[in-house]
Computed example of a mutant assay.
Amino acid sequence: AHQRGAKIICLIHDLSSFRNKSLTPHEEIMRLNATDVLLTHNHMMRQWLSEHGCKVKMIDYEIMDYLHGESGEPHEPVAGNYSLFYVGNVSFKTHPYLRKLAEIMPDRDIYIYGHHPDTEEISKYNNLHYMGIVSDRQIIKSHMGDFGLSWYGESLDDGVGRIGEYMSYNNPHKISLYLRCNAPVIVWSKAGRAEFIEKEHLGLTVNSLATLDEKLKKIDYKEYRHLTDNVRNINAKLKSGFYLDQALRQAIDYLSVSST
């Protein structure tokens, strides 16, 4: 592309050197340094890349857009009695925290959508409901659950293990899916998107899921409505491609100035 006079803007979806170790950091940085502008998830990822030798211009695109699917309506929950939903790999082997969470909040319903279910184990918990493998369009339109849960790894407390640690650096696409559902989200307080969630008042950031039940009990109906009103505003932006468009404009402006 460079030989033909083109400029390269690279949008990062995942870092292979970090998530699945299919590349070393050096191998990945070598490839990324061959581009002209990198669109990075957040300042944490940008800092990690810089520390590992990335030299090109980096621009955060804040959150992944989610263009398709018709938005549903926010739920009308009973204040304090909010339910949760999680979309993704629901295997207890990969995410044992799901089992632990069901155990510590037995009176709160948790709806899980996705693949690799331990159906026999799930059936042991009256509050854990496996909803099957459902298209994102259908989830957006008619999901169960009042708060979307974005959590990875083994522990209720923090980013333990390779997948859990990656929470600090990436913007999970499922957060965008939850927001398209008009649902407030729950994320780890040190996650890459925690700052965005707090700034826009889109849900809860917690140090540990062990404290979640008490936090949910304190949220009254007015506060929940305030969260869903904020979510609805971000929902419209995600559906329109606002965040990618904004990042691309910055990248193009930078390339225009740097080439003169």
Rank of each mutant, 00 (worst) to 15 (best):
Met64Ser: 15
Phe85Lys: 03
Ile63His: 04
Arg99Met: 13
Glu154Gly: 00
Tyr152Thr: 08
Ile140Leu: 07
Leu128Gly: 09
His75Asn: 15
Leu84Asp: 05
Glu121Ser: 07
Gly132Arg: 05
Asp157Phe: 07
Tyr82Trp: 07
Gly161Met: 00
Leu98Ile: 14
His143Leu: 04
Leu67Asp: 10
Trp151Gly: 04
Pro96Gly: 07
Leu156Phe: 05
Ser123Ala: 14
Ile163Gly: 02
Ile104Leu: 06
Ala102Arg: 01
Tyr113Phe: 02
Ile63Ser: 07
Pro77Thr: 05
Lys124Ala: 11
Ile163His: 13
Asp158Val: 01
His115Val: 13
Gly69Ile: 09
Ser150Leu: 02
Val160Glu: 12
Thr119Ala: 08
Glu103Cys: 00
Tyr125Pro: 02
Pro96Ala: 05
Glu76Leu: 15
Tyr166Pro: 00
Val134Ile: 15
Pro74Trp: 15
Ile112His: 06
Leu98Glu: 02
Glu154Leu: 07
Ile112Asp: 04
Leu101Phe: 11
Thr119Tyr: 06
Phe147Ile: 04
Leu98Met: 11
Ser150Val: 15
Glu120Asp: 13
Phe92Asp: 10
Gly80Ser: 06
Glu120Phe: 09
Phe85Ile: 00
Gly145Asp: 09
Ile163Met: 12
His143Glu: 04
Ser123Phe: 00
Asn126Ser: 14
Gln138His: 14
Arg99Leu: 09
Tyr97Cys: 02
Arg137Tyr: 14
Leu128Pro: 10
Thr94His: 08
Gly148Met: 03
Ser150Arg: 02
Gly164Ile: 01
Asp109Cys: 01
Met131His: 06
Ser83Lys: 01
Pro74Lys: 09
Glu62Trp: 13
Arg108Phe: 02
Val160Thr: 11
His116Phe: 13
Gln138Ser: 15
Leu67Lys: 15
Glu121Gly: 01
Glu76Ser: 15
Val87Cys: 10
Tyr82Gly: 06
Ile110Ser: 03
Phe92Met: 09
Arg99Val: 08
His116Gln: 10
Ala102Leu: 01
Asn126His: 13
Leu67Arg: 15
Ile110His: 06
Ser142Glu: 15
Gly161Arg: 02
Glu121His: 04
Tyr97Pro: 01
Ile112Cys: 04
Tyr152Leu: 08
His95Asn: 13
Thr94Leu: 00
Phe85Cys: 08
Val160Pro: 06
Glu73Phe: 14
Glu121Ala: 09
His95Trp: 05
Glu73Ser: 14
Lys141Met: 13
Tyr97Gly: 04
Ala102Gln: 05
Val134Tyr: 10
His115Arg: 12
Val87Thr: 10
Phe147Cys: 06
His68Arg: 11
Pro96Glu: 06
Asp65Pro: 08
Tyr66Lys: 01
Ala79Tyr: 05
Phe92Trp: 13
Met105Leu: 03
Gly88Lys: 06
Asp158Trp: 12
Gly159Ile: 07
His95Ser: 01
His143Arg: 14
Val160Trp: 08
Pro106Asn: 07
Asp65Met: 12
Glu73Cys: 07
Tyr152Ile: 01
Ile139Trp: 12
Glu70Ile: 13
Ile122Asp: 07
Ile110Ala: 01
Ile139Val: 14
Gly80Pro: 04
Glu76Trp: 10
Asp136Lys: 10
Asp109Glu: 12
Val134Met: 04
Val87Ile: 12
Leu149Glu: 04
Pro74Met: 12
Ile139Cys: 02
Ser135Gln: 12
Glu70Ser: 14
Tyr111Asp: 05
Ser135Asn: 14
Glu121Tyr: 05
Phe147Met: 03
Tyr130Met: 00
Thr94Glu: 00
Met144Tyr: 14
